[in-house]
Amino acid sequence: MPTLAGFIQTLSTGIFQGGVYAIMALGLAIIFGVMHIINFAHGEFLLIGAYLTYWLFHALHVDPFLSILLTFGLVFVFGQIIQRYLLDPVRHDHSFVLVMTYALSIFIVGLMFIFFKSELRSVVTVYSLWSLDFMDADVILNLQDMAVLVMAGIFFVLVHLFMKRTWIGKCMSVCAQDEEAAQLMGIDTRLVSSLAFGLGSALTSVTGSLMITSQVFHPGMGGIQTLKAFTIVILGGMGSLWGAAVGGILVGIIEAVGTLFMPGIYKPIIGFSILLLVLLFRPSGLFGKASV
């Protein structure tokens, strides 16, 4: 049985990880909620964020937390271009969209291999190991992890306010509910879709920027992140912002705590077990089909 300190430490690890998962799933929830498409390249946008941060840190000595703004802006624009010129032309055929996003994921992975090779990449800052120690240093809360969680929270609040308080956000909500009705109301749904894809992709890239401060990356790990994002979004409820946040935190905690009671080798099974259980017993997810 784990000690109390061990349990608290593991729980905190799960919460920190879950916060990052939440932002990753938030991006997917927005894209699915507004555009009703499955984006197979979701994890690759996370790679873009991670590698941009890596490059800015190592080549230009830009702090990873500062690079988030630049990453967000660049991927927001890139995402819009992708939506406008690759996805929009085939938006009426879902199978085409699936193939296109799959091709896009291969394309991005290929580029990453060319520019960053297959080696593991990470960002270690001077403050990477700063921490608050409790219970005779048996519980160590890493300050960088806490900062990542705070950043995740800030992004969630900003996105929530954007969706509820801004005209564009409200347009996205309308499109999520009924695209035809939105068009009849004079909303430029193509523009809204483009902005939604840009926002969703940018949020996912932010996840990559945050994750590379505490994990290692290689170009082949986008696929597993895409699956994880789908697991969280399905757990929380497709298209639900709150669902993505709560689902992310839950998956992070369940993964971490689960490995306390079973060998670490089974960790990948935990996420997919959650997915199967939710699909079997509550296919609409924790927050039903709440719209964006």
Binding site: Q9, T10, T13, Q17, M211, S214, Q215, V216, M221, I224, A256, V257, T259, L260, P263, G264, I265, Y266, K267, P268
Partner: peptide
């Protein structure tokens, strides 16, 4: 014990 190499975090 054994662990899965694909796991990005061995903290637990």
């Amino acid at each position: 014990g054994m662990y899965d190499a694909k796991t990005g975090d061995f903290t637990p």
